[in-house]
Amino acid sequence: METTLIIASAEIRALFREKTIYAITGVFLLMTAAASFISWSTFTTADAVYRASVVYLHARGVVAIPENPLHSIPALVSFDNLIIYVLLIGALLAVIIGHRSFMRERRSGILQVLFTRPVSMRSFIFGKVLGLGSVLLGVMSITAIISIASSFLLPLQQISIEDIGHALVFFFLSFLYMLFFALCGLLFSIVVKSESLALFIPICIWVGITFVLPELATGLTPTALLNPVTLLQLPVAEGFFNTAQHLLSPVSLGWHYTTMSGELLGSSFRTSFPILRVLTEHWIEIVTLCASIFTLVIFSAIALQRFDPREGSIHE
């Protein structure tokens, strides 16, 4: 246990010293802050457009003016963009963090030294996973603080304790989703000898999960599917897409993540679902995500058992 903690803390320290990680985390956090501002400015403008429309309609003698539709928007609507940023920046950040985590060891040639010490492969891999998990949890916590704080500073609606609860569940879900990609990065950096191929494969998996699978299951174009609103208002699938949805469901992690997040934040129905309802309705998806994470940890441990530390140097 002690070894695991030593490796985990070394991992955290190393990640915090990498410029690359800072750069992408910086972009991610910047976008988080920007997302709140964008939503606020859009909402404020839309509100002004409504008032201008009322004046316009009054001038034309219209009496029955519909209520401001913006009033029915749930408080967490400003978090909508975060779903997209986690799908895009967050997942890629995670892949790079996971990839770097083991590549750093391979490049330094330190593995030969490490494994001649009483360090078991199991404690090594658990240490890595713990370190990666802590960093991602840290990044998500900062994201949560920024987003929740800015939704108080630039409020669209009154934010209740319940809303914050929804947001926290969403952030934890995002953390799990990112952890999955970090572990993909880690696994392939152990299994694949070429450094670029080891990064390329998880990126392909990311493209597959983010764009290709939802496209196959819905027939919609890749970028349209990034938007939770599009996904949650899908027409009933017909023919091929109906079959594809059933077949691809277990592996469509990105799609499930978007759907659940959309329901938690109230993206599509403009009213969020109770947490318990989301969790019970999507329990299979949540179990699938957790099982995928667990499988990746096991696979990484097995791959490390087979890894020859003498072959640690980088091949291209």
Partner: peptide, 22 residues
């Protein structure tokens, strides 16, 4: 994505202007 998000008409399902009959 930012461009799409900032479109006032995208703020309400089915279109903002549609919702207020414009």
């Amino acid at each position: 994505q930012i461009g799409d998000t900032m479109d006032t008409d995208n703020q309400v399902p089915g279109g903002f202007f549609n919702a207020i009959h414009i």
